[in-house]
Simulated scan of single mutants.
Amino acid sequence: MSKTIKDLTAGTAGGIAQVLVGQPFDIVKVRMQTSPKGTYSGMMHCAGGILKNEGPLAFYKGTLTPLLGIGVCVSIQFGVIEYMKRFYAERNALNGVGGPGGRNLSGDQLFISGVLAGLANGFVSGPVEHIRIRLQTQQVKNYPYAGPFDAIKKIYTAHGIAGIFKGQGVTFFA
Rank of each mutant, 00 (worst) to 15 (best):
E82N: 15
A58K: 12
A93H: 09
S35W: 05
G48R: 09
F123Y: 11
G22M: 10
K52N: 10
V21G: 05
K85C: 09
N95K: 15
T39F: 04
C46N: 07
G38L: 10
Y88M: 04
T34A: 13
L67D: 02
L68S: 04
A89T: 07
R91C: 00
P66V: 07
L105E: 06
G114M: 10
G14W: 04
K52S: 11
V72G: 01
G14D: 01
A47H: 05
V80C: 09
A13K: 07
V115Q: 08
S35F: 08
L51C: 06
K85I: 02
L119D: 00
N104L: 10
K61F: 07
Q18M: 13
A89P: 07
T63F: 09
H45T: 04
G118H: 05
G99R: 07
R31L: 10
Q33W: 09
S75V: 05
P127T: 06
G126V: 02
Y88C: 03
L119P: 01
C73P: 00
F111P: 01
A17K: 03
L68K: 00
G38K: 15
L20C: 09
K61A: 15
Q136T: 01
V97M: 05
F123L: 15
V30T: 13
G101L: 06
G126W: 00
I50H: 08
Y40G: 08
A93P: 01
G79E: 02
D26V: 11
F87I: 02
L94A: 14
G14Q: 04
F59S: 11
P127H: 09
V74F: 14
G71W: 03
E54K: 13
R103S: 10
